[in-house]
Computed example of a mutant assay.
Amino acid sequence: MTAFWEPGTAYGPGDIVRYEGHRYKIIIPHTSQGDWNPTVTPNLWGRLSDEDKGEWDGYQEHHKQPADYKPPVDYHPPAPEEQKVDIPHEERQKRWYDLDDNRKKDLEIGGGLLAGIAAAAGGYYLYKHHEKSEEDKKSDTWALQNWLHDAEARQKEYRQNGPRGPAQWILNKGKDIPPNAIVVGPEHDWTLWICRAYIDGTIQVGKASNVFERGAVIGYHDKEVQLDTYEILVGDMRGLKWVDASGYLDVDNLRARPVEGGHDKDGTPLFIAEAPHNGAVHPGIASAKLEGAVIPYGGKTVQVNNYRVLCYNF
């Protein structure tokens, strides 16, 4: 008997589920969540025949649909596998809302959002995704896949050409920390390294360690978020230095160029900070809009007035 679809379940190749009286076969392996049921995620699930023949009724070469099928609002059928959409580098730097409506449709129909959907389904953190409008969900997916695309390009360049400076972000997964990752300091019996990841239209800086559940911890909206796919900062401290700062960050007062960290939703740069707290030094963020460095700690975020910013040593 076909199992019923359930949220919080890891579905893999060949899985078939029943939902609202119909059967669906998986397209993209993922871990389900409450707002991604089969009727609203046609790129993740394909509807099967109700006559139990194992034949696809969903979008196929001849675009067949069952007579009673009603697509969700704004639904576009998934494209055939060979159909691709080219996304220039310059376009990836744009927000979803800055694209015109015709281009958005091209990206949806041509599979331009599939990578982001697959990434999110594969365990990336999308902040309160289920509470957002359909257009906001598409924006979230677009931004996530563009960050991931750029991170993969940085990782490929690093593997082919080696370091290109004293600090470089490279894509990393899980608890396997690269040997040249930049250390912030020990906490108890373990080491903390610097990481960053996409969350809710931002790139946030946090901490990585091989003792964490998934490898990385990012602070966002006063909570700690566990991630297993992130970028980690590698390099050589001989070309870097920590510069004292306090309160709202004034980059000009550093008298040194800070290392690129991330950015907030409005584009405000987020720089790499380290701050003392509870007997250890922790990585986090500092910016012109924060009253001090913000670090993830103890399941939430903590603000520390006096901190240091990572800068280039030249």
Rank of each mutant, 00 (worst) to 15 (best):
H263Q: 03
K132S: 07
E51N: 09
W142M: 09
H89L: 12
H188F: 08
H282D: 10
G123F: 13
D15I: 15
V40E: 10
D68A: 02
P88C: 12
D176L: 08
C195G: 07
G34L: 09
A197M: 05
E134V: 15
D52F: 10
E91T: 05
D101N: 14
G215R: 01
I295N: 03
G165T: 09
A67P: 01
L113C: 04
K241L: 00
D244R: 08
P42T: 11
I28D: 05
N278A: 11
D106V: 06
N313C: 13
E108V: 14
G284W: 00
G12P: 04
L114W: 01
E91G: 09
M237C: 14
G261Q: 12
K94I: 14
G174R: 04
Q33S: 10
H89M: 06
V294C: 02
G122Y: 04
I272P: 02
G261V: 03
W5F: 07
D68W: 14
L44I: 01
Y198N: 07
E82R: 06
P77F: 11
A151M: 04
G8Y: 07
G54K: 05
D86G: 11
G123Q: 05
C195Q: 11
L44H: 03
T39I: 04
D86A: 15
Y69N: 05
M1C: 06
D150V: 02
D200L: 03
A275V: 13
A118N: 01
V184H: 12
A288L: 11
Y75W: 15
D236C: 15
A118I: 03
V211Q: 02
D15S: 10
W96D: 11
I182Y: 03
I199S: 09
W5H: 03
K175S: 13
Y59D: 08
K53H: 10
Y24K: 05
T41Q: 09
Q65I: 10
K105G: 09
S287Q: 01
P88K: 12
Y59N: 15
V304E: 04
H130N: 14
Y75D: 07
Y69S: 06
D74N: 14
G206M: 12
I203S: 11
A120Q: 13
T229R: 07
K265A: 07
I87G: 09
W96N: 14
G12K: 15
K175G: 05
D74C: 09
V281R: 15
S209D: 03
I16P: 05
Y11L: 02
I28C: 05
A286I: 13
E291S: 13
Q93E: 14
P72S: 08
V225A: 05
D222N: 10
F314C: 12
I26Y: 02
L144H: 04
E51H: 03
H263C: 12
H129R: 04
E213W: 10
S246G: 13
I177G: 06
I26F: 06
L192P: 11
G174Y: 00
G279R: 11
W142L: 04
P88Q: 06
P276W: 00
G123C: 12
Y127A: 04
D228M: 12
L227I: 00
L233E: 08
E51Y: 06
D57E: 14
E260L: 01
V183L: 10
G201E: 06
Q226F: 15
G206V: 03
T9D: 00
D244N: 09
I194K: 11
I26M: 08
L270W: 09
S133F: 06
D140L: 04
H30I: 04
R255V: 07
